[in-house]
Amino acid sequence: MFAYIVKRLLAGFLVVTLISMMVYALFWYGPRSPAQELCRRESNNRCTPEKLERYEEALGYNNSVTSEYGKWAKGLVAGRDITVGASVIHCEAPCLGLSYRTRQPVFEEMKTRLPATISLAVGAASITLTIGVTVGVLAARRRGTFADKALVSTTLFMSSIPYYLFALLSMLYLTIVYDVFPQTGYTPLTDNPGAWFTGLLLPWLALGFYNSTSYTRFSRGAMVESLSEDYIRTARAKGLTSRVVVMRHALRAALVPVVTIFGIDFAFLLAGTIFTEKIFDIQGIGRWGLDATLIKDLPVVQATVLFGSIIIVVANIIVDIIYSILDPRVRLS
């Protein structure tokens, strides 16, 4: 088990490294360099070749991609000094560089944005899982009835609505037009738990409820399958109550695939929920990455990509471990 985790971590490290290299390569060989973008923006669309050259030098775009990537990687491990104009800023390890826009260390900003994304992800995922599995199990037990069919078609209808539209409409009608929910936004839990809760309530519900539709169908499917297994017939033939048969025998087996998918989905939520953060005005990782991409703020983009890929790699390992715990037939090797 330990060897397995080490092996998977090594492989994951390789993947993450490759991804970060690709991000660098994209910025270096992309159609318009970040230096051009920054120069244009900071000189009110009057970027002269001389100014551009200064920007390129300051950001390192006149150097080769390998040497700049090397500097960045070294900074990540050991920290580095970065020259901004006349001053030199020391960036502590893990140094992710300075944001082109704010000229501040990226890592520090990330630490302020992470709690918002984590709060959003945990809340929404809990709602997704609770609603999804509960409704899915109920539908599976009433398979073929009118309620089951209505539910399946409703979830199908729901998932055919694009999420941004769903989120936007719920924001529009539930906050602005009808004022059911208070203004959304993120307040740190430590500052004001009440404001934290009310500000996130609608985003939680919107994201959690929307995602739950696919979990409903998925857990219904897994449950229908496990209810038709031979061992369910055995359990009934033993004289167990139907509650024990369903909860202890069928649900246990049905949960395995659900948990597997949930682990990966949760990692994606943690890596940033762009639409939700944008629409409900939450300063999280996803929105940060989006804004940075639009202005080609390489260090921030690199940081969000790095964070996202690490989360996904780790989540995959955790899912495999959970899988091996849930299903004794699975051995990690």
Partner: peptide, 8 residues
């Protein structure tokens, strides 16, 4: 019996 016993 492999299918008829609960694997977990």
């Amino acid at each position: 019996a492999l299918a008829a016993l609960h694997p977990f």
